[in-house]
Design a protein around this nucleic acid. Structure first.
Length: 231
RNA sequence: CCUGAAGCCAUG
DNA sequence: CATGGCTTCAGG
């Protein structure tokens, strides 16, 4: 019997009604995955496999475009940021050994994210911006080992957030290989994998738009810039 | 190779 | 405000 499977919205399940009845159930936000099958059995197999891989897929992050989110009381919020000054960039150019780079973190406790409890930063020469974003995450996770409260990592880097929440699990399952080319900043990601899997039960992630009125994001941006100034 | 996303810079 | 390059990734 012709069967349609829907996964990922409020209508998740198997349907044997005609497509004209099922199609409206797929037009939702967020968009679901859906597929048609010739038998209910094959639909069930696909559904179970998708569901299993969905369970294996790890936590997502919430996105915040206006910089404002409600902070839970007693929860810790660690803002992270990284940057470099790629002076005199030109076509075909790369990060020079003399380019300054830095990462910074700032730890707050909810619900009032006004005064950081702790800040840290470090400047280097000749490192990439993304390397610094990853370093910031790594140091945030290491700092979190010093307390036991639940905590949230706040970053403005999709590269960092997509990797901690999704890609690094795929890379790890594949023996630390990705679709094409070598994995950048591999050693850092392997350390982060260990730290995140150990603390997963009290860890969440938020993405904020860079420089968009988030006090914590602006704070770490200033911290890493003064770190570069002092280098 | 192309598409997409985010970040980081430089110059005017 | 605008143009242009580099760091990273996934998917087609």
């Amino acid at each position: 019997m012709k069967t349609y499977a829907i996964i990922g919205n409020q209508y998740e399940g198997l349907y044997t009604q005609p497509w004209s009845k099922v199609q409206p159930l797929t037009k939702t936000r967020p968009a679901p995955k859906f597929k048609g099958f010739d038998s209910k059995a094959s639909a069930q197999i696909w559904f179970d496999q998708e569901k299993a891989s969905q369970n294996l897929r790890h936590r997502q992050y919430t996105t915040v475009y206006d910089g404002a989110f409600t902070a839970e009381p007693q929860r810790y919020y660690i803002f992270t940021d990284g940057g470099n000054r790629n002076t005199g960039n030109h076509a075909g150019g790369h990060v020079k050994p003399t380019d300054k780079a830095a990462w910074a973190i700032a730890i707050y406790q909810g619900p009032n994210l006004t005064q950081p409890l702790y800040t840290d930063s470090q400047a280097y020469l000749g490192r990439t911006n993304n390397d610094m974003e990853v370093q910031a995450l790594l140091h945030a996770l290491e700092a979190a080992e010093k307390f036991t409260e639940p905590f949230t990592i706040v970053s403005d880097s999709k590269y960092v957030l997509d990797t901690v929440t999704n890609w690094m699990y795929n890379w790890q399952r594949a023996g630390w290989k990705k679709a094409s080319g070598p994995i950048a900043n591999l050693a850092s990601w392997q350390k982060i994998f260990t730290l995140v899997t150990a603390q997963a039960d009290r860890l969440a992630f938020i993405w904020v738009k860079g420089h968009a009125s988030s006090a914590g994001n602006i704070m770490v941006d200033q911290l890493l810039n003064t770190a570069m100034d002092q280098l």
